[in-house]
């Protein structure tokens, strides 16, 4: 359980980090280390160099944006996000997901950018980002990129972030104006374990209770977190107060290519995903109905 030898550097700027990453194809970014260090200990990762970005000041912070959105620096610790009033106000779905992320001791070290770059299919932060329509900001050796979340997750722990690039921040855009409701639910063997299935929902209603925006995403059940855009397509424009979510969710979940393993079969994950999705939608709807117009 000891890692292979590697060198360690702690650059002060994003530019220096990018130079180090570009100069060594076996270099790996170290942020909070809560996933990377176990992989090093088990020698599943054998980097030549760790580039520690945790103290780059330009990569930390939680900033409310003029348009009602929220920018969170990639190296911002999860515990800061969990306790942030700004996150509660501007990205309430992320705030609801945070207590489900690992355990308090891992949230004290783990970062939002690390979770997004690692892109575990069962991870909560990527799922909340997907259901929120977040944007991932990336710095490459030659410039910057903004990756939309819909095309971000390519496979289990594979993202659209290019080689040797650095995730610098996550932007949570403001939802369309209206009555907002959000909810996050998951099921795992024990609190803090990897989710068998999880669901994140965001609903916006107009003054008459008509749905003007609905985003529902499922995690843990498939290779990547999945946005069930068919559910949104079926329900946007409707008077959700009278809507039963069973048909729309049932049809969308039936299409999912669920994974099965020792811990939970594909069938179980599909059923759990369906139940959690309906629960999350109902809770988000109730919150939106109770929200001030």
């Amino acid at each position: 359980m000891k890692p292979v030898p590697f060198s360690y550097s702690r650059p002060d700027t994003i530019e220096d980090a990018c130079v180090l990453l570009a100069g060594d194809e076996d270099a790996v970014v170290l942020a909070g280390g809560q996933t990377l260090i176990p992989m090093l200990a088990m020698r599943l990762a054998r980097p030549s160099q760790l580039v520690d970005i945790a103290r780059i000041s330009a990569l930390t912070g939680i900033n409310a944006l003029d348009d009602g959105g929220l920018w969170i620096g990639a190296a911002t610790r999860q515990v800061e996000i969990e306790r942030s009033v700004e996150v509660l106000r501007c990205a309430p779905l992320l705030a609801k997901a945070m207590p489900w992320v690992g355990h308090a001791p891992t949230r004290a070290r783990g970062t939002i950018g690390g979770s997004m770059a690692n892109a575990d299919p069962a991870a909560e932060i990527p799922l909340a980002a997907l259901a929120s329509g977040a944007v991932v900001e990336v710095k490459t050796g030659t410039g910057t990129m903004e990756l939309t979340i819909e095309g971000y997750f390519l496979g289990p722990m594979v993202t659209a972030v290019p080689e040797a690039a650095l995730v610098t921040g996550i932007r949570f855009q403001a939802p369309p104006p209206g009555r907002l409701g959000t909810a996050f639910h998951e099921v795992a063997a024990r609190r803090g374990d990897f989710a068998f299935a999880s669901a994140a929902a965001r609903i916006v209603l107009d003054d008459n209770g008509h749905c003007i925006d609905l985003r529902l995403a499922i995690g843990g059940a498939c290779d990547v977190p999945v946005l069930l855009s068919d559910v949104g397509a079926a329900l946007i424009g409707q008077q959700l107060r009278r809507t039963d979510f069973d048909d729309a969710v049932g049809a969308a979940v039936a299409e999912l290519d669920c994974i099965g393993d020792l811990h939970a079969s594909a069938d179980y994950r599909r059923r759990a995903a369906s139940t959690l999705a309906k629960r999350a939608l109902t809770e988000a709807l109730n919150e939106a109905l109770g929200a001030p117009t």
Partner: peptide
């Protein structure tokens, strides 16, 4: 903050 000492490098 409570942290796991096995998940932090001494450096």
């Amino acid at each position: 903050e409570a942290v796991r000492a096995c998940l932090i490098l001494a450096v």
